[in-house]
Amino acid sequence: KTVKFDGLQFDFDNPEKALKFALEVAKQKGAEVHIHGDEIKIE
């Protein structure tokens, strides 16, 4: 899975870790997590 935000991109082999990371970043930024297939966007 790939996590994208602020023009940055982070690749994870483990989908659970990717989602956990995305949710943590979103919480800190006050943003929402959007999942599109293998891509997780924080907006």
Rank of each mutant, 00 (worst) to 15 (best):
L8A: 04
G7T: 05
E16W: 07
L23Y: 13
K1D: 01
A31V: 09
G37Y: 07
F21K: 14
Q9P: 01
F21A: 14
K27T: 08
H36E: 11
L8T: 04
K17G: 11
K29L: 14
E16H: 05
K41H: 15
A26E: 04
V25N: 00
E43A: 09
A31R: 09
E16D: 10
Q28F: 04
I40L: 08
F10D: 02
K17F: 10
L19Y: 08
D11I: 13
D11A: 09
K4E: 06
F10S: 02
D13G: 03
E24A: 08
H36P: 05
H34W: 10
I35E: 04
D38M: 11
E32T: 13
V25I: 13
K1F: 14
I35G: 02
E32D: 10
I35N: 00
A22N: 00
T2V: 11
L23K: 10
A31G: 11
A18M: 02
I42S: 03
F12Q: 01
V33H: 00
D6S: 02
P15S: 12
I35M: 10
A22L: 08
I35T: 05
K1E: 04
K17N: 12
K4G: 06
I40M: 03
P15V: 12
G7L: 03
Q28I: 11
H36L: 11
D13T: 06
V25F: 08
V33K: 02
V3N: 01
K4V: 12
K27R: 11
I35K: 03
K1T: 14
T2I: 11
Q28T: 09
N14S: 13
K4Q: 07
D6Y: 07
E39D: 07
K20C: 15
I42V: 08
V33G: 03
T2L: 07
L19K: 03
L23A: 12
I35C: 15
G30V: 05
A18G: 05
E16G: 03
K29M: 14
I40A: 05
V33C: 14
E32M: 13
F12Y: 02
D6C: 15
H34N: 06
A26Q: 02
G7C: 14
I42P: 00
V3E: 04
A18S: 02
K20I: 10
A26R: 00
D11K: 10
E24M: 02
D11R: 08
G37H: 05
A22P: 14
L19M: 10
I42R: 01
I40P: 02
I42T: 02
A18K: 08
A31M: 14
V33S: 01
V33M: 06
F12A: 02
